[in-house]
């Protein structure tokens, strides 16, 4: 992956979060927001306004697949699942994010 500017990095972190979440199990959009909110005690939130476009984008890249299914509540819900190439991408993005966090930490400590 080429280096990214700040906004793209933010997008990227949302992608990372979604991929990581879906690597647990396939789920629909609402479940993803709930999952993220629960996991981070509400510090991070997958805002619907950016979540759904992000899901589309990931789908377009072939990293996740979408399938319509009956939800437990009986409604038609779109379930997202991570694909094989999505798993690979998750690995790459995790590495990159960790390098970024390391770097940030070093910078912050040095100050």
């Amino acid at each position: 992956m080429p280096t990214r500017d700040k906004t793209e990095l933010l997008h990227g972190s949302l992608d990372l979060i979604v991929l990581r979440t879906l690597s647990v199990q396939p789920m629909h959009g609402y479940a993803i927001t709930q999952h993220v909110a629960r996991l981070t005690d509400g510090v991070l939130s997958a805002d619907p306004g950016s979540l759904y476009p992000a899901l589309e984008r990931l789908k377009r890249n072939g990293w996740i697949t979408a399938k319509w299914q009956q939800s437990p509540t009986g409604r038609r819900a779109r379930y997202y699942a991570i694909s094989r190439s999505g798993l690979k991408q998750l690995g790459r993005e995790t590495n990159e994010f960790e390098r970024f966090v390391d770097a940030m930490r070093r910078v912050l400590r040095a100050t």
């Binding site: 890249n61 072939g62 399938k67 038609r76 694909s83 094989r84």
Partner: peptide
């Protein structure tokens, strides 16, 4: 993508789909 999306599966997914607008509306 070299994943497991065979054309047949794509076909079925498309059959379940009701077109982009309806899908997005339903999801929201």
């Amino acid at each position: 993508p070299r994943d497991d999306r065979s054309p047949k599966r794509g076909l079925r997914a498309r059959l379940m789909s009701r077109g982009p607008e309806r899908d997005v509306d339903d999801e929201i």
